[in-house]
Design a protein around this nucleic acid. Structure first.
Lengths: 119, 119
DNA sequence: AAGTTACTCAACCTGATGGTTGACAAACTC
DNA sequence: GAGTTTGTCAACCATCAGGTTGAGTAACTT
């Protein structure tokens, strides 16, 4: 369900052109033609990219020729997913570091200096 | 470079099985065999998935049979990308109400601010 | 209503992806 | 050192993703 949604969102953003489209749309809405102009590929290709973004819920339009707009809420879905596991993992590493600090003997094989500037 | 990295990270997380691997690794390191056990697919398939995660920098191992561990720092890369455009878009929408009445005529001001990819 | 412009659909090609099985390599166990 | 366990590599297959071109459709302009 939301499972599938996440897959579509991540897949959509795995393409550099589509990330660029998102980047541009974050500063201004634009029509398909305007969006396609800077790229080397055909208009049809860009239209396809926009369909992928639309299916992922990242972008929307009111009608065919209407300007495309970014749906910023979708980002929440991603950040929620990311933060959950990031946080969990980091907590684990913090415990690990504490543990390693206690039993600091030999085997300095892998010092986990996890420099996270989280938040 | 980092461009490509981001693509690999998003592509890696576009697969539900790989997201599940990440989820499980966030609570504990595990060997390939342990990771593969719950799934229906072959061990080789899971091994491939792990290679994708590894190439994306999401996961690492010290040796072949060593437990796989999650590299939580990569998440920062994603959240930074997301937050940048999310924030930009949301600011825009906040201003939208006020601007809408006044800026009804065209503004041809898109000067190719192609800000893809963090350095 | 006709014409032009803006966009999408359909068919097709190519390369990448996720899966399989079988053979191999590395690493523990004895 | 021989054998078993654990993981990877290679070859192959089916499907998908991104690109193309050509034809069709929707929407403005007149």
């Amino acid at each position: 369900m939301s499972e599938d949604r996440l897959s579509r969102v991540f897949a959509a953003l795995a393409d550099p052109t589509r990330r660029d489209l998102v980047a541009r749309l974050s500063s201004a809405d634009a029509t398909v033609g305007e969006l396609a102009a800077p790229y080397d590929v055909s208009l049809q290709a860009v239209s396809k990219h926009l369909k992928v973004l639309e299916d992922a819920g990242l972008v929307s339009r009111e009608s065919r020729r209407a300007p495309v707009r970014l749906e910023a809420e979708v980002f929440d879905l991603m950040t929620k997913w990311i933060e959950r596991y990031q946080q969990q993992a980091e907590e684990r590493y913090q415990r690990l570091d504490a543990l390693l600090a206690e039993m600091q003997d030999s085997t300095p094989s892998r010092q986990s200096s996890r420099a996270e500037d989280a938040s």
